[in-house]
Every structure is written in C-alpha cells, then in structure tokens.
Design a protein around this nucleic acid. Structure first.
Lengths: 216, 216
DNA sequence: GATTGTTACTGCAATTTGCAGTATAGAGTC
DNA sequence: GACTCTATACTGCAAATTGCAGTAACAATC
C-alpha cells in the first residue's frame, strides 16, 4: 500500500496513463496544455517523474522508432493502477494560489499609481485571455468530446471551475480599478478615504460579485 | 538598476521592511500568517532570503539580545528602497493556482464516488474556513487598522479578493456536489448523462455564480 | 524543578525549476 | 537538391526551494 512515495505530478501522469499509453513527449505536452493551470509543473520535471514511475514499477516502458529517432512509450501496470486508486482514497491538499500581482498591490504605496494601474490592467488582461481559453475549451469538449471523451463529465466540472476562477479575477480587477480611480496617490487613501476603506472591508457588499459578463 | 536578481519573496520581505524594522523571526512569522495564502513560501526560505538581501546591500543588520539569546534586526537601505520601487515598475507574473483536489476530480473515474465526494467535501470545508478567516481579518483591519494601518486601503483590496476567491471555491464545490448527487458511479456519466454534461459545459449558465451567502 | 510553549534560528538531503543544449524528422520553398 | 523552419524527443546541470529535523535559550505554569 504505497501512499506518499510519489509526487502529485506523478499521480497525474499515472492518471493519464490509466486512459491509454503515451510517449514521454506526449505526456510532457499534455501536462503543459490546459492541466498546467490547475497543477503547474516545469517541463523538465515531467520527464523526471517518468523515471520515478518506472523505478516504482508503476509503468512499463518500450521503445518505438521513427527512422533513427527513438521514443519511449509508457504503459501503466496493475500495481500502478492500484497505487493511483490508493492515492485517490487519501485526503486532498487544500488549493493554493500564487499571486505576485497581489504582492505588488499590497506594497503599492512604495510605487506609483501608474505601477498599480499597470498591475491591475495586466492581471485583468491575462485573466480575460485565460477565461476565454477555457470557454473555447468547453465548446471544444462539448462538440468533440476532447482528448478524453470518457472523462468529459469530469472535465466539465474542472472547466467550469476554471472559467469561474478567471472570471472572478477579472471582476475583481475591474472593481479594483474603479476603487483606485479617484485616488490622488498610492499612500494617502489609507487615511483620507476612511469611508471608502471601511466600505471595501464591509462584508456582504461585494458589488463586483454580481452582474458579470457571461449572462445574457 | 537591479531587476531580476531577487525572488518575489525577497521583494515582499523588502516591502515589509519599507514600513519599519523587523527581526528575522518576525519577518518569517509575517510571511506565514495571511500573506502565505497569496504568496506561499517555506519557512526555511524566508530566512534564506534575508542573507540574499544583506548580500545585495538592500538591508542593514544589527544584533539585539534578550539575555543570552540573540536576534537579528533588519533595516532597509536606500538602495533597497530603490530596488523595491524599480521592481514595482516591472510587469507582474500572471496568478497561478495549485489545486491538487481538482487533479483528483479529473482522475475521479479511477476511484470511487466516495473518493470524489470526500475531495469535494474537504475542499469545501477548507474554503469555508479560509473565507471566514479573511472575513474576520477584514473586520479586524476595519476596527484596529491592523499591523499596517498606513496600508489599510491596499489590504482592503487584497482582502476583498481573498474572500471572493474562497467564496468562489465554496460555491463551486456546492455546485459540483449537486451535479454528482445523482451519479451512479464515477465512470458512466460521461455517456449516460449527455444532457447534463452539455449543460455543465454551456457558458452563461453558471448557476453557482449567483445567490451566494454574504448577501442579506 | 519539570514540563510545555514560544522565540530564534541553522543544517542538510531531496526535490524542483529554469535554462540551455543536442539531434532527428518532416514539410515547405526557391 | 539544398535550405530553412517547425515539431519531435529528449538530457545535463546549476541554482533555488522545500521539508524536516535539530538546537537552544527564555517564559510561564504546575
């Protein structure tokens, strides 16, 4: 009963292999496209984890050739399937965010208003791009079934989360841009705009939670 | 004009020092409480970054004593302030999430319905706890000004995001729990419940986006 | 005076990242 | 038929980061 001897990237890889065989390159590609927004990993690590999987005998390998160029194909073993199922029985780690832009917001009094505006603008733009990407992805899955037709119901759950997540960031940036619109600088609103600050901190009044795009 | 010679944790530390002096222990503590939800870092790394800051002459150090026990107090230098301001002028990295629970959702067909239910339940509970924590924090800042009264306007922006973020996770889990409520197992809904899957994937119908708690 | 908790860190192995590098295959193009 | 461009298919290595354990003094209670 192995349990914590493998990284989450390892179990994710095992999960892809549970559907069918993949080459190392394909696996690295899959973990980069789409899934990386949920579980980030460096390209280098995606290859490294395969050696670990082989070491634990969770996968079998075989070589295929295209002319002189070799590639390794991975197959999940029965003990690999068991390990994956065992892992799914363990409790999940809570989700975490890494939001460098928000660090910049917290320290914005050490920079200019334009710095702060720029941070919000870029955050908004990337959130918009990502939201649209997942929206297109939803349409693609709905139309074709996607790369894993047998998992479309699960992809639908995850995809809905991702759209909502980026939508939330988007609406927050729009709200924040409105909040700072009348700031004379990055420092004085702490004391000058007491009413506004209190208003921001008062729960139950998250205006930006409502009337977002996506509704007709 | 230094730019990328320091990690984000380094600039964050510099940002705390921009307000006033801190001991290494206090800095490590601050980066653990509250800010860790925005910019995660290992306890060990928070100490390591201080040596790097001293190396770059962005901080000065002095020793204080309580009996035989020493502690190092850090002060930001003028070149430290310049480096921080210069960093604030650079573009931010887009936010990223690490959501192990969602990996489990994607691979849920390799486990039981109870596994999936457990993942959603634990995600929901931790999101609820975190949302309430930030809600209490908002009340605390509103009442006392918090640890950085001069930054309360910036904390208000960040805090509002965090509450909305955990609220979004919470509402998504509740929605997802409803979606899987009538699933007979983790595999068949892909083909058996085509209408439901299509419904989940259809944009503009995120029911869970609306009528959330926090409203009267 | 014994135990428990908080302050105040350091050492080290293992993992992970980031970047660069190598080399073949195939498709288009002049 | 030589040339460029992109995709395939990875490996090596330094640097950064994590996770965990360990040390030790002070502070308060039992």
């Amino acid at each position: 009963m192995p349990d914590r001897d493998l990284s989450t990237t390892g179990y994710l890889t095992l999960g892809l292999l549970a559907a069918h065989d993949w080459s190392a390159y394909q696996l690295a590609e899959q973990l980069g496209r789409g899934v990386a927004e949920l579980w980030p990993s460096a390209d280098r690590g995606r290859y490294a984890v395969l050696n670990r999987l082989a070491e634990l005998a969770y996968v079998d390998t075989r070589l295929e050739h295209t002319g002189k160029r070799a590639r390794t194909i991975y197959t999940i073993t029965s003990s690999g399937r068991e390990a994956l199922a065992a892992w799914l029985r363990t409790p999940p780690r809570p989700p975490s965010v890494e939001f460098e832009g928000m660090v910049r917001v917290l320290l914005a009094d050490q920079g200019s208003l334009d710095d702060l505006r720029g941070t919000l603008q870029q955050t908004r733009e990337s959130a918009l791009a990502n939201r649209d990407m997942f929206a297109r992805y939803a349409a693609y899955i709905s139309a074709t079934g996607g790369t894993f037709p047998e998992r479309r119901h699960l992809f639908a759950l995850a995809n809905t989360f991702m759209i909502g997540h980026y939508d939330h960031i988007l609406r927050w940036t729009e709200w924040a841009e409105q909040q700072i619109a009348d700031w004379p600088d990055t420092v004085t609103p702490a004391t000058a705009n007491e009413a506004q600050v209190r208003d921001m901190l008062t729960p139950g009044r998250e205006v930006w939670e409502h009337d977002h795009p996506g509704d007709a």
